[in-house]
Design a protein around this nucleic acid. Sequence first.
DNA 1: TCCCGATATTTTAGGTTTCAAATATCGGAG
DNA 2: CTCCGATATTTGAAACCTAAAATATCGGGA
Lengths: 173, 173
Amino acid sequence: MTLLAQNLLDAETKAHEHEDGHQAQLRLWLRLLSFSALVESQIRRRLREDYRMTLPRFDLMAQLERAEDGMTLNELSKRMMVTNGNVTGLVERMVGEGLVDRRPAPKDRRAQFVRLTPLGRQLFQRMAGAHGRWLAVLFSGLDEKEMETMMALLAKAKLSARDAVARGEVEIS
Amino acid sequence: MTLLAQNLLDAETKAHEHEDGHQAQLRLWLRLLSFSALVESQIRRRLREDYRMTLPRFDLMAQLERAEDGMTLNELSKRMMVTNGNVTGLVERMVGEGLVDRRPAPKDRRAQFVRLTPLGRQLFQRMAGAHGRWLAVLFSGLDEKEMETMMALLAKAKLSARDAVARGEVEIS
DNA sequence: TCCCGATATTTTAGGTTTCAAATATCGGAG
DNA sequence: CTCCGATATTTGAAACCTAAAATATCGGGA
């Protein structure tokens, strides 16, 4: 192959990648979204029907479960990947229900520690068991090896996205 | 191996699966969620900053794009995997912005067809291009083969979840 | 000490989302 | 034709969520 031909081919490949070549990524992303919407709606429904519980509240409790002494609102919002204001309202409602309590941080008068109440902890134990079983059923079509593969690919994808964000390249054409 | 030993082993395997054996599914699910939250927040931000557009509106427009004559609210809500009421409000606002229009269905007086306006279509074209490029960058750490593998695994996982839902077994322990 | 950028939280406004109940229409069984 | 279960949409209430601005506090340098 001549150098010119090679260059033309490169150019075409590049152009192709830039015009329609994003299809694979788009399709992958859409498929991931539709799968997660499906699973999420099931979990949401079960939490509501069996425990009168919402997913965000469950999520917050899951974060608190391993922190005996609780954690600050800020740490909660980072772990849950939601905004601060969101957590403020969520905790507000959950304090009202007796699931968590709030107390001032010892050293920092700006911060507050949130932790599960005994009631909240007890309820979470039961929900967590059920939650695990629901997931086991929903994922039962995947064997050990397939789950491992998917874990690895998701880890790689997450790194990829993090890198892109860090490089500030999400806006590049 | 004696029959007794075999039975004990089975019992242990079963017990293990029922007590701690759901860890793999839970971890996989959490990883998928955190990845999708990361990607979603980036797309949300770019849509807002570059196009003053929200993700739900973009999503709705994407559904309408390939339906020249539009589609009913009901079909929209199914494709978007959200409730009817949600779509009602979304369309309401978007009509006000001139992005979509509504007209009665020819044969069915209960239904309405929603479709992109020329303005909406034109805006969507630009956004879709950018959206594809953002995804390409975010997923750039995955090669062709890895994306194919992930597509296949997600397809399998989705089937698995659909089956579980159809069998009504999400509540089984 | 005083100041100032950083951090923790709340507040405000608006949009999104769900569920459940209500309304309107369809389409077929009798 | 009439009735009735199914379907399409809307409405209302409550929760969730975000972005941006406001408030309070921290902690270190001048």
